[in-house]
Computed example of a mutant assay.
Amino acid sequence: MAKTQLNVRVDEVTARAARERAGARGMSVNKYIEELVRQDVGEAGQTFVQAAADFMKQYESVFAEEFGPEREGHR
Rank of each mutant, 00 (worst) to 15 (best):
R16D: 08
F67N: 05
L36P: 06
A52R: 15
S61K: 08
F67C: 05
T4H: 01
V10M: 02
K57R: 13
R71H: 03
Q5L: 11
E65K: 07
Q50G: 04
R71G: 00
G23E: 07
R21H: 08
Y32S: 03
G45H: 09
Q46R: 14
V37Y: 03
F55S: 10
T4K: 03
V29C: 00
D54S: 09
A53W: 08
K3H: 01
Q58N: 07
G45S: 06
M1F: 00
V37E: 01
Q39W: 14
A51V: 09
F55Q: 10
V10R: 00
E66S: 02
A52D: 13
V62G: 00
R38A: 12
R9D: 04
Q39R: 11
E12Y: 01
A24S: 04
D40M: 11
K57Q: 13
K3W: 04
F55T: 12
M56K: 11
G73A: 06
V13H: 04
T47H: 07
R19W: 02
A24D: 07
V29M: 03
Y32A: 11
M56D: 10
R16I: 10
P69N: 02
K31H: 14
E66A: 09
I33M: 12
S28L: 07
F48G: 03
G42F: 13
L6C: 03
N30L: 09
V8W: 02
Y32H: 08
S61F: 03
V49N: 10
E70K: 07
D11C: 05
E60A: 12
M27L: 12
D54V: 11
A53K: 12
E60D: 07
A53T: 13
T14I: 12
A64S: 06
A64R: 10
V49C: 10
F63E: 00
D54I: 13
Q58A: 15
Y59F: 14
D54R: 10
S61R: 08
M27W: 04
E66T: 09
V49R: 14
V41D: 13
